[in-house]
């Protein structure tokens, strides 16, 4: 009976599985195949070589990769620090107000990322909302706050705020109140309750939020282009350039594969660190 159910389940999942394979795995395979093609070719009918990976190592693409991963890491840490108190309040303190915050944060997603970033450009540029008003009112002037690394990180934090906040709220709401109270009753200070109880028991939310924020930030380029003015070039920017202006699909593919491998390994590592069964109190 169980076997029959399993077969039926597999059969009914087959159409979706095929669509997923075609839409997700097939493009990835094409990218993988292009990454081992000779430079500047536009089809796969060539002898494979690894020259694109050689170019990647020799032409300093590691710097773009490091900038992408570094800004992604910095923004993820900042996001965690900023979102934790708010997420805690939304999960444990606020009642109906949680809904108001949720709606307010979700509404920002209704406007395209680029338009929101342009809003910040207009706000922060020289002659923009802040500097322009300051100059008109006081005569004082400054160069504007754009075109540097911190503003790129600010942009990433701003754009990916919901992707950290909501998983954290979910994670924190999984921590039973009586476990926190029991820890405190057994002598734990607020810091120890956070470290020993809140943090490990909300780990699923932390891991999901961090992975989402990190993966999206590592692959982002609008922030570095619009706010950063290409003060630094990130890997996504390099990939786009290779595919478009560079007309070097194999190089773009090799860069993509490296990024996918790094982020994929981090995701697998992160998820494997969370023992959901023990956190949820389920038997194994």
């Amino acid at each position: 009976m169980e076997r029959h159910d399993r077969t039926m389940g597999l059969l009914s999942a087959l159409p979706v599985l095929l669509v997923l394979l075609l839409s997700f795995a097939a493009p990835l395979l094409v990218v993988l195949a292009f990454s081992v093609m000779p430079p500047k070719v536009f089809d796969l009918a060539h002898m494979p070589d690894f020259s694109a990976y050689g170019v990647l190592l020799s032409q300093g693409y590691h710097r773009s990769l490091a900038w992408a991963l570094g800004t992604a890491l910095a923004s993820t840490i900042l996001l965690f620090l900023i979102c934790w108190p708010l997420a805690y309040a939304m999960a444990k303190v606020f009642k109906r107000f949680t809904l108001v915050i949720t709606v307010a944060v979700v509404i920002t997603l209704f406007v395209s990322e680029n338009i929101r970033l342009f809003g910040w450009v207009l706000t922060l540029m020289k002659g923009g909302l802040i500097e322009g008003h300051l100059r008109a009112l006081t005569g004082m002037s400054f160069e504007g706050a754009l075109y540097n690394v911190p503003i790129i990180i600010f942009g990433l934090v701003y754009v990916y705020f919901p992707f950290m906040l909501f998983p954290l709220v979910q994670g924190i709401s999984m921590v039973p109140d009586d476990a926190r109270q029991a820890a405190s009753d057994l002598g734990a200070s607020k810091w120890q309750v956070f470290w020993e109880i809140d943090l490990p028991l909300s780990a699923p939310g932390i891991v999901v939020g961090s992975l989402l924020s990190f993966v999206l930030a590592a692959g982002a380029m609008a922030e570095s282009k619009l706010l950063g003015g290409q003060a630094v070039i990130v890997i996504a920017d390099e990939i786009e350039t290779a595919f478009t202006y560079g007309q070097n699909w194999p190089l773009g593919s090799a860069l993509s594969i490296v990024l996918i491998l790094i982020i994929g390994s981090l995701a697998v590592f992160g998820v494997s660190r969370v023992d959901l069964d023990s956190i949820m109190g389920r038997g194994r």
Binding site: A179, Q181, A182, D185, A188, S278
Partner: peptide, 27 residues
């Protein structure tokens, strides 16, 4: 609570699911 020399066994027991039996007792 953490400054009082008293302690409570909760109705739900409030054991820490991410810790082993020994780690719970040692907490």
């Amino acid at each position: 609570a953490n400054h009082r020399p008293t302690c409570m066994v909760f109705q739900s027991l409030a054991l820490f699911p991410h810790r082993s039996v020994g780690e719970n007792i040692e907490f």
